[in-house]
Amino acid sequence: MVDYHLHEAIKEAGLDLTKEQMVVLKKLHDEDGLNQNELAYLTYRDKSSLARLLSKMEKKKFIVRKPSASDKRVNQVFVTSYGKEIFESAKPFVGKLIKRMEHAISETEKQQIISILKKVQTNLS
């Protein structure tokens, strides 16, 4: 349900962006220059599906991959200025959706949900 509403929010913004691409842009916004293995781990994706996603993002000029200076077999991923612009354009729409989802949910209830979801995540790891 959240995926659907997120997709609709991004579409409302008129952006050519998927939820998966938004997640990658968020991770690179937090720490630009991650290598593909780190990015796969942080986004809970297998390496091959992440490589396909990154290829699509490169075609859209959201990101650029460059060989690591220390190990040419490893690609580092950097967000482009256009990718930053797209990410910043999407943030208000995503924020609006989050506010809508959190309506009438207390801070205590939010913390309980987070705690329970972390336990589920740990159980599945």
Rank of each mutant, 00 (worst) to 15 (best):
A13M: 03
A13L: 02
L15A: 10
D16L: 10
L17E: 01
L17N: 01
K19E: 10
K19F: 08
E20N: 10
E20T: 04
Q21G: 07
M22I: 04
M22G: 05
V24P: 03
L25H: 01
K26A: 15
K27C: 09
L28S: 14
H29F: 15
H29A: 14
H29W: 15
E31L: 12
E31T: 09
D32F: 13
G33D: 14
G33R: 14
G33S: 15
N35Q: 06
N35F: 06
Q36A: 13
N37E: 04
N37V: 01
A40H: 12
Y41F: 14
Y41N: 15
L42K: 12
T43Y: 09
R45L: 08
D46I: 12
K47I: 11
S48P: 02
R52Q: 11
L54I: 01
K56G: 03
M57G: 00
M57D: 00
E58T: 05
E58W: 02
K59F: 01
K61N: 13
K61E: 12
K61F: 07
F62P: 00
I63Q: 02
V64I: 15
V64S: 12
R65I: 04
P67E: 09
A69D: 05
A69K: 04
A69R: 05
S70I: 06
S70P: 01
S70H: 08
D71M: 07
K72I: 04
R73F: 10
R73C: 01
Q76A: 11
V77W: 10
V77M: 10
F78W: 13
V79N: 03
Y82Q: 06
Y82A: 07
Y82S: 06
Y82K: 13
E85A: 07
I86T: 09
I86N: 04
E88W: 07
E88K: 12
A90F: 10
A90I: 08
K91M: 11
F93I: 07
V94R: 11
K96V: 10
K96T: 15
L97E: 15
L97M: 14
L97S: 12
R100C: 08
M101I: 15
E102I: 01
A104G: 01
A104Y: 03
S106D: 05
E107G: 00
T108C: 01
T108Y: 00
T108A: 07
E109R: 11
K110C: 03
K110W: 03
Q111R: 07
Q111V: 02
Q112P: 00
I113H: 06
I113F: 11
I114E: 15
L117P: 02
L117T: 04
